[in-house]
């Protein structure tokens, strides 16, 4: 299995959004690298302790790879991008101390991805992988607080309407992707991601 060549071409600015397929795949090495960080995130889940892990996504010799893994706290992390790097993209985990999974992008994830100039952002929560891709419709900057509030409001509304955590995440993430002109893909780990929304 290899990372979808069109995804790498899109991230390199070589093809337009409409040439991106509606399913995306990653190389076995990429899947395994993400899964390894997830396993580290929940290593102490039996004690109710979780830690977010993440890393930078890099394109090297035409391949997408996960590099520079770091851990943060249960609530977030900081990834240092080398000044020599022109490709800003990231992966991070969303472990929940209660063991719940299917928790997608937070409102701050959306706003920070936009403001920090990331081209692609990936989040893993359990067997679920969420992906955001920047497009020509994505604004340059957005207020963080506004999107925190909107995300939490949409998630709460969906959850209180008896949706699962995963379904509430997908509904809220899809709506904010539409608001911010981001392409949004979702899938199960080690399988293909499927397009949920494309501007």
């Amino acid at each position: 299995m290899t990372t979808t060549p069109a995804l790498i071409a899109y991230l390199q600015g070589l093809i337009p959004l409409d040439e991106l397929p509606d399913t995306l795949g990653f190389s076995n090495a990429m899947w395994q690298a993400m899964e390894n960080l997830w396993q580290r995130s929940i290593a102490n889940l039996d004690m109710g302790l979780v830690i977010e892990w993440g890393g930078l996504l890099e394109i090297s010799q035409g391949r997408l790879r996960l590099a520079r893994p770091v851990s943060g706290t249960a609530a977030g992390l900081r990834l240092i991008v080398p000044s020599t790097s022109s490709f800003v993209s990231s992966f991070h985990t969303h472990p929940d101390s209660q063991g719940y999974t299917g928790i997608g992008f937070s409102g701050a994830d959306f706003a920070d991805m936009v403001n920090q100039g990331e081209r692609i952002s990936l989040v893993q929560s359990g067997r679920n992988l969420f992906a955001l891709l920047r497009t020509e419709d994505t604004p340059v900057t957005v207020p963080v607080l506004k999107w925190r509030t909107r995300m939490n409001s949409l998630f709460e509304q969906a959850y209180r309407a008896r949706r699962s955590i995963l379904a509430a995440s997908l509904i809220a993430n899809r709506m904010i992707s539409q608001d911010l002109g981001l392409a949004f893909y979702y899938g199960r780990m080690f399988r293909q991601l499927v397009e949920v929304y494309r501007p």
Partner: peptide, 27 residues
């Protein structure tokens, strides 16, 4: 068990901030 990062706006473009504290609190 969770500590919220105080500010998700990071002036240094070469640091990517991931701040999910409010979403996990909501969950």
């Amino acid at each position: 068990k969770r500590q919220t990062l105080v500010n998700s706006v990071e002036p240094n473009r070469h640091i990517l901030v991931k701040d999910d504290g409010d979403l996990f609190s909501l969950v």
